[in-house]
Simulated assay, not measured.
Amino acid sequence: MGSVSHLGYFGERRGKRTNTFPKGVLLGAVALLVFAAGAIVFGQTTGIGVIKHRAGVPVAIRDVTITRTADDSVMVKDARNGVLIAAYEKDTGGFVRGSLRAFERMRMVAKVSETAPYRIIKWEAGTVSLSDTATGERIYLEAFGKDNAAAFEVLLGQRRGASQ
Score class of each variant (00 low, 15 high):
Lys122Tyr: 00
Lys23Ser: 12
Ile51Phe: 09
Thr65Val: 07
Ser131Asp: 03
Gly136Leu: 04
Gly56His: 06
Arg68Glu: 05
Leu100Ala: 02
Val154Pro: 09
Val4Asn: 14
Leu27Ala: 06
Tyr140Trp: 11
Asp91Trp: 05
Arg80Val: 14
Asp91Ile: 04
Ala125Arg: 08
Ala87Ile: 07
Ser113Arg: 00
Glu124Ser: 03
Gly47Ala: 04
Val34Lys: 05
Gly2Ala: 13
Gly43Val: 00
Ala102Tyr: 07
Leu7Thr: 13
Gly157Tyr: 05
Thr127Glu: 09
Lys77Ile: 09
Lys146Met: 09
Glu124His: 04
Leu156Gln: 03
Gly8Gln: 01
Arg17Ser: 10
Ile85Met: 03
Phe152Leu: 02
Val41Pro: 11
Thr45Ile: 05
Pro58Met: 04
Thr45Trp: 04
Ile120His: 01
Gly43Asn: 00
Arg14Met: 07
Trp123His: 03
Gly15Arg: 03
Ser3Ile: 08
Asp91Gly: 06
Leu130Met: 05
Phe10His: 15
Phe21Asn: 12
Gly136Cys: 03
Ala151Pro: 06
Ala110Tyr: 00
Ser99Lys: 11
Gly93Met: 00
Pro22Ser: 05
Lys23His: 09
Lys146Arg: 14
Ala110Ile: 01
Ser131Trp: 03
Phe144Met: 13
Arg54Glu: 13
Val4Asp: 15
Arg105Ile: 09
Val76Ile: 05
Thr45Arg: 11
Glu137Lys: 07
Glu153Trp: 00
Glu124Thr: 03
Gly2Trp: 05
Ala143Thr: 15
Phe103Lys: 06
Ala149Gly: 10
Gly145Ile: 01
Glu104Val: 00
Leu100Tyr: 04
Val109Pro: 09
Lys52Val: 10
Tyr140Gln: 12
Ile48Trp: 08
Val64Leu: 11
Pro117Leu: 03
Pro117Asn: 05
Arg62Leu: 07
Gln158Thr: 03
Arg97Trp: 01
Ala70Gly: 12
Ala55Asn: 14
Lys23Gln: 15
Ser113Ala: 00
Asn148Arg: 15
Thr115Arg: 09
Pro22Lys: 07
Lys90Thr: 12
Phe21Arg: 14
Asn148Phe: 08
Arg17Gly: 06
Gly49Glu: 02
Ile40Cys: 10
Ala150Val: 12
Leu32Tyr: 06
Ser73Trp: 10
Pro22Trp: 00
Asp147Asn: 14
Thr18Leu: 15
Gly94Asn: 13
Gly93Ile: 01
Gln158Asp: 11
Val128Thr: 06
Ile139Met: 13
Gly28Asp: 03
Gly24Trp: 06
Ala151Tyr: 01
Glu142Leu: 11
Ser3Trp: 08
Met106Gln: 15
Asp63Gly: 13
Glu124Ala: 03
Arg62Glu: 07
Leu7Phe: 12
Gly28Pro: 09
Gln44Met: 10
Asn19Trp: 12
Val25Met: 11
Met106Phe: 13
Arg160Leu: 05
Ala86Ile: 04
Leu33Asp: 07
Phe35Tyr: 11
Leu141Arg: 04
Thr92Glu: 10
Gly43His: 02
Met108Phe: 08
Ala87Trp: 04
Ala143Cys: 12
Ile61Gln: 08
